[in-house]
C-alpha cells in the first residue's frame, strides 16, 4: 500500500472532501509527525505506536578505500515503536508473552 492508496481510501470514506483535501489529510498526518521530530518532539499515537528520535553517537569509522580512520559524527535517526495493539493484531493466533 502506498500513500496514493490511503488518499483513495479517504476520498471514498469522506464524500464531502475532494481529492485535494484528501491529499491534505493524509499528508497532514505524516507532515505533523515529521515536523515534530524535526523539533526533537516525540509523537505518541494511541493504538498505533510512537515516533521518537534515536541518537547514534559519534564513532570511529574507516575509509574502506584507504583504510584511514575517520570520525563519523553524531546522527539522529527517526525511530518507530509499534504499539501493543499492533503487536497483538499481528500475532492474533498465539497470545503474546512479555
Amino acid at each position: 500500500m502506498t500513500k496514493a492508496h490511503l488518499i483513495e481510501k479517504v476520498v471514498e470514506k469522506a464524500k464531502t472532501l475532494n481529492r485535494r483535501d484528501a491529499e491534505k489529510v493524509v499528508n497532514g498526518i505524516f507532515d505533523s509527525i515529521r515536523d515534530a521530530l524535526k523539533r526533537g518532539e516525540k509523537t505518541e499515537i494511541r493504538g498505533f505506536g510512537s515516533f521518537r528520535l534515536r541518537i547514534r553517537r559519534t564513532k570511529d569509522g574507516r575509509n574502506p578505500k584507504t583504510g584511514e580512520t575517520v570520525s563519523v559524527p553524531e546522527k539522529r535517526m527517526p525511530f518507530f515503536k509499534a504499539g501493543k495493539e499492533i503487536k497483538e493484531l499481528l500475532n492474533a493466533e498465539e497470545p503474546t508473552h512479555e
Binding site: V10, K13, F48
Partner: peptide, 22 residues
Amino acid sequence: YVLQCMKDVLRKGESVKIAGFG
C-alpha cells in the same frame, strides 16, 4: 480511519510505503 487502513494492511503482512516519510 487512515491509521486503521494502515493497520489492516499490516495485519495482512503487506508493507505500507509513504513517499517522503518511510
